[in-house]
């Protein structure tokens, strides 16, 4: 139905797209460490060597773990398998809350202690009016 040239061009495009997708996949796969925005506490526990560089740790703020004294705030980031203690002094974002997502940027002191220089709130994909939230909590 179509000419030979049309078919040739079609297969050329398919070939290009396949090769491009494959190479991008391989590049991203090998750079995975840099693509992720933060690491989980479990990943921190399993790292072989400590680096002095700035890293980000993300997870949930453990319930009843936030304590504020003077101008310092302490809390625990958990991924429900492992935990890490975070010390931070400064303002936290409005959405920072116990039981919600958080990303802390800073330096590791040891496997259990993290000195944060910046706190970001990571919110989830749920959007609803306050009344619906209240009704859900009653259930």
């Amino acid at each position: 139905m179509y000419g030979r040239k049309v078919k040739l061009r079609f297969f050329f495009i398919v070939l290009i797209l396949t090769i491009l997708a494959l190479s991008i996949y391989l590049v991203l796969k090998s750079l995975e460490e840099n693509v992720v925005y933060f690491q989980s506490p479990s990943e921190i526990k399993n790292i072989a060597e400590f680096k002095e560089t700035k890293i980000r740790i993300g997870g949930m703020v453990k319930k009843d773990s936030v304590s504020i004294n003077m101008n310092e705030i302490n809390f625990i980031i958990t991924d429900f398998k492992n935990e890490i203690n975070v010390i931070y002094s400064g303002a936290v974002p409005n959405l920072f809350e116990e039981g919600k997502g958080v990303v802390a940027e800073g330096f590791l002191k040891d496997r259990n202690f993290f000195m944060a220089s910046k706190i970001l709130a990571k919110h989830d994909e749920n959007y609803m009016p306050p009344e619906v939230k209240a009704a859900l909590e009653e259930k």
Partner: peptide
């Protein structure tokens, strides 16, 4: 207002 940053180099 939500995350606490204007920009993040996430994916």
């Amino acid at each position: 207002p939500t995350w606490g940053t204007w920009w993040a180099w996430d994916a």
